[in-house]
Design a protein around this nucleic acid. Sequence first.
DNA 1: TTATATGCATAAGAAAATTATGTATATTTG
DNA 2: CAAATATACATAATTTTCTTATGCATATAA
Lengths: 110, 110
Amino acid sequence: MSNSKLYRGSLNTIILKLLSQHDKMYGYEITQKVKALTKGELNITEGALYPALHKLEAEGLLDVEVVKVDNRMRKYYKLTQSGTKETVNKMEALADYINTMQALLNPKLA
Amino acid sequence: MSNSKLYRGSLNTIILKLLSQHDKMYGYEITQKVKALTKGELNITEGALYPALHKLEAEGLLDVEVVKVDNRMRKYYKLTQSGTKETVNKMEALADYINTMQALLNPKLA
DNA sequence: TTATATGCATAAGAAAATTATGTATATTTG
DNA sequence: CAAATATACATAATTTTCTTATGCATATAA
């Protein structure tokens, strides 16, 4: 994913937010989009991504639609209603995380 | 630690930065300082903290000094030279993380 | 005197990632 | 044309990091 361990725990947030911006995406597309947006800094590995997508689906946050394109399979994921709600929660949690880390590491500003 | 999974991977960064600000600290002190600075949002559990401290020591980033105060043991930790270097790296990694997450989640600003 | 606070430690288990494979088709390159 | 790369999914074994539970010991507050 990255040489920095800070990204551990961020994958679901990233997936959900991307899907809130793009209506539907498939796994490989997500890896490429993340790589492009982060200029190569973040590379989502398949071993992390696919289990995460399956779990989000099992939790009812994502819906799947299987499509065949150029004779190759694609599984398009999109947010469910509760997936949309959870995305809002995750974004709030991220804002809180950043604030908290700043309070912790720059106590002068507190 | 927190209800949010985003903190996974942040513990070493927090420990090192606190030690860069306080010269020396002992484990229990770290848990209380973090709780105070984050107004209760972040509670470092002992099961996470002590193994982390031991590992940082084994890696040569921390030195230990055992002291008895009021008949109770305290293990004071302080940064070694390479611990100080690693703290700089961790802080850069945190700044990168925040920038990258913002690029990822607010692509309009990119 | 009993609960809470201080102070350390470790073990069992869960969660989330890495690394390594595996399968299959399409396209680019030498 | 053959070989490498890109596209596209998946899972298993292992590692890392955390939670939860437990244990020991002393001091202080209720």
